[in-house]
Each structure stands twice: as structure tokens, then as C-alpha cells.
Design a protein around this nucleic acid. Structure first.
Length: 421
DNA sequence: TCTGGGGTCCTAGGACCC
DNA sequence: TCTGGGGTCCTAGGACCC
């Protein structure tokens, strides 16, 4: 048996923990550069805000309903997430962190106890200790736990915890096809066309025919809804295969100087992440393109791939490779809106030296990176950086409404939570 | 004027091998 | 006039997830 614990409206709930007066009011959180909606409180959902809505189209609604609008504050959300997950681990050692706001919990270790009862206690503890409300679904497979979770979220009477019953038909009938985990927009449309509109309809379809019309993953989803385990519990995550760092520009970029600084910044952040996970990359891809929405300006999309020989995680090597690949494909006369660096073919194994590499050179680079990381860890990110990333900060995000990073920065600690002096 | 930033897996088709 | 049967690897595109 599995449980899926999922934080309710996570980012909006994080904003509320330190500002309780936001309770009951519509709250939305914006993407980087304050571009579009990425999270909504229940009240904001009822006003019709959807994930991905560009905020500038909703100025009137915001004003009329006094919607609380916040820039994203991932320092806060990441730390709150860590606290929630820590609390879960006190109730079961088998926790698979699935995303920033949800985790699967294997319940088999709790044999003899009432699963629902334990999960209710866990829910209470998380709410009391972190201030974050969660919903919990329990089922025989991950897909069924997800489904029960969905049910719990929409059915207040169950008090935040729901379990797929022995005879699941009635519950399955209440879940629309697009709300089944693993069935997205395209497949839902196709399924509705053949008369499949709920989870209940889907379990009645012959799995083999689903495999033929869709693919093996869709078939596994059907089997999971029928109670057969296909998606395994993964306590420790598999080693990642790719790593991407990219961002839209607050203001369009037209010069090679600015674009190269952005690419060097992404290369820096990607290298740091790589070292953080003790990996090296064999392939690098760099890309940049103009706005996807602007129909009047000339459009351009460029990308290039290079092999890193030998595989590396050294910042200056990766910056050099990224800029070397980007320079020949850069063109004058375009307003670039986004750039990024992707690292592929990642491995943790020992590095095979190339014929002309000196061991001394590699050792020196390694020592330099250890020093760089240590300085930046103790004195703040970016304290030491390569000149290629520039000093004017082309990467500056538009973030006009970010709340304080209450739990991770000393100078932003909450001073008063109750409105009293 | 203003539209996010990450990931995974599967499949089909082409190039190549014997 | 007639033209096999079996593999692997790579890439692009499309689906899904948060």
C-alpha cells in the first residue's frame, strides 16, 4: 500500500505561513520575471486563474478582487518543502520525494496499524509543525494513491485523507479522465473521442488495446488503476541524465556581449549543480531564441551541441565550451528573449583522460573548484565568479513582489507574526 | 509592453553493421 | 527479370510529470 501526501496549493500556502492575514484571500504566485501564474490559492482558483496565465491580461481581476500577487520565492518554498518531508520521515522511513510539494510513502512497514489513522496523525503534525496543509491519498498502487489524493482534495468531508475502498467503482466514477495521473491533455482528448471520460471507463478498457492506440506507459497506467503495481517505489532517486539551466530575459538581448554573459552565467550554474551532485558531463548543448509570442519582430532560434573531452564539471571549461559553441551561431539583429545551457550524458564514474591532458592540470582545476565552491558557500553565491559572466548582471530577474526569505536568510527573519508590536 | 523552468520516457525513422 | 534478414545506435518529435 502507498500513500501520496501532497501539499495544498503549496506556494500559496508557504506565503501564508508567515502572513496569516492572507488566509481566506485569493493569492497567486508568479513565474520568474513576474511573467505568468504558477500557483494559486483555492480562492484564486475560483476566480478563474489558471497556471500559465500571463498576469498582464488579468490586471482588472487583480484590482477588482484585491488579489494578492507574489513573485516566486524558491528559497522559502525549498526550505518549507524540506521541513514537510522531514516530518513525514518521522512517521515512515520509506518516503519517496516526488516533487517539491509531494511524496509517496510506503505503508507496508506500518503493518497491523490503521493506515488511515496514521496518515491523519501525520497530516496533523505537518500542519502544526510547518503550517502547511496537506492532502493524503491511500491506494494499492502509486496511481491509485494519486487518485485517492485527488478525491481527498475535492471532498472536504473526508478531512484531507482518503483511501481507495475495496470496491473502488464509485470513487473511480467521480474522477475525470484528465485527472488521472499519467493521462494528459492529448490522450484525454483521444480517450474522450472513444467514449472514455472517467477513471472508471478507463479501467474497463482492454489494456492491450490501450497499448496499441497509445503506448506502453498508458497501458501501465490502466494496469495500475486495476491494482497491479507497475510504477516502482524509489526511495533514493535514480542518477539524473540531463541538467538544464535556462531563463528568459527581463529585457530582450541584442548584443553578443550580453548574450555571452547570460550563457556564461547558465554554464556556471549548471557546473555548480553538477559538482554538487558529483557528476561530470560529456555533452553540452547551448541555445537561445527570440520571443515565441512576438509576431512582428524577426524570429530566430539557434542551438549547438559539443562534446566535452574529457567529461568535466569544471566551470571555466564548461563556460569556454558553451561560448565557443554559441559564438558561431549568434546573429546580429535579433531580440533574444531566452538562453540556456544543457548538460547531457552525465556520469559519476572515473574520468577517462584524453591523450593530451595533463594530470597536473586536472588536479589544479579540481582544487580551484573546491576553493571556489567553499568561498561561495560561506560568503554568498557569486562572491567569486568568472569575468565572462559580466558585472552588469544581464540575468537580473524582474521580481517586484517577492516576500522575505523568512527561513534561510538572517536579515530576512520574520520580526512579528501576530500583528502586535 | 509584459507569456516559467525544470525533468522523464517512448516511438519512428534513418544510418550503419554483418 | 530477379534484390534477405537480422541487428545496433542515434536523433527528433511528441507525450507525460511537477
Amino acid at each position: 500500500m502507498y500513500a501520496l501526501a501532497d501539499c495544498n496549493n503549496f506556494y500559496a500556502s508557504c506565503e501564508r505561513v508567515f502572513e496569516p492575514h492572507l488566509e481566506g484571500r485569493p493569492v497567486i504566485v508568479l513565474s520568474n520575471n513576474d511573467g505568468c501564474v504558477i500557483a494559486r490559492s483555492q480562492e484564486a482558483k475560483l476566480l478563474g486563474f489558471k497556471v500559465g496565465d500571463p498576469i498582464f491580461k488579468f490586471k482588472d481581476v487583480v484590482k477588482q478582487h484585491k488579489v494578492i500577487v507574489r513573485s516566486s520565492n524558491f528559497a522559502l518554498y525549498g526550505d518549507m518543502s524540506r521541513r514537510v518531508m522531514q516530518t513525514m520521515r518521522l512517521f515512515s522511513p520509506d518516503v519517496e520525494v516526488y516533487s517539491i510539494d509531494e511524496a509517496f510513502i510506503k505503508l507496508d512497514g506500518l503493518k497491523g496499524r490503521n493506515y488511515e489513522e496514521v496518515m491523519r496523525q501525520m497530516r496533523e503534525a505537518i500542519l502544526q509543525w510547518t503550517g502547511i496543509p496537506v492532502s493524503i491519498g491511500i491506494g494499492k498502487t502509486k496511481t491509485l494513491a494519486k487518485l485517492a489524493n485527488h478525491y481527498a482534495k475535492r471532498t472536504p468531508e473526508v478531512g484531507g485523507v482518503a483511501k481507495v475502498p475495496q470496491k473502488p467503482d464509485e470513487m473511480l466514477k467521480t474522477v475525470e479522465i484528465e485527472d488521472v495521473w499519467g493521462i494528459g491533455r492529448q490522450w484525454s482528448k483521444k480517450l474522450r473521442n472513444i467514449g472514455v471520460s472517467t477513471a472508471f471507463d478507463l479501467v474497463s478498457v482492454e489494456p492491450e488495446s490501450i497499448r496499441r492506440s497509445f503506448n506502453i506507459v498508458a497501458m501501465k497506467t490502466v494496469m495500475e488503476l486495476r491494482g497491479c503495481t507497475y510504477f516502482k517505489f524509489e526511495q533514493s532517486p535514480e542518477q539524473r541524465k540531463t541538467l538544464l539551466r535556462s531563463r528568459s530575459f527581463a529585457n530582450p538581448v541584442t548584443s553578443w556581449q550580453k548574450l555571452s554573459e547570460a550563457i556564461a552565467s547558465h554554464a556556471t550554474r549548471a557546473s555548480e549543480k553538477l559538482r554538487n551532485e558529483d557528476l561530470v558531463a560529456k555533452v553540452l548543448r547551448v541555445f537561445f531564441h527570440t520571443s515565441l509570442y512576438n509576431r512582428t519582430d524577426p524570429r530566430n532560434s539557434a542551438h549547438a551541441t559539443v562534446e566535452l573531452i574529457p567529461p568535466t564539471n569544471v566551470t571555466h571549461t564548461i563556460i569556454k565550451a558553451a561560448l565557443g559553441a554559441a559564438k558561431p551561431i549568434w546573429k546580429e539583429g535579433f531580440k533574444y528573449k531566452r538562453a540556456g545551457v544543457q548538460l547531457l550524458d552525465l556520469s559519476s564514474g572515473p574520468v577517462q583522460c584524453s591523450l593530451f591532458d595533463s594530470q597536473e592540470g586536472q588536479d589544479r582545476d579540481k582544487r580551484m573548484m573546491v576553493l571556489l565552491d567553499a568561498v561561495n558557500a560561506s560568503m554568498g553565491a557569486g562572491t567569486l565568479h568568472f569575468a565572462a559572466t559580466g558585472f552588469t548582471n544581464v540575468m537580473q530577474m524582474r521580481q517586484l513582489r517577492r516576500s522575505p526569505r523568512y527561513t534561510t536568510h538572517w536579515d530576512e527573519l520574520p520580526k512579528c507574526l501576530c500583528g502586535l508590536d
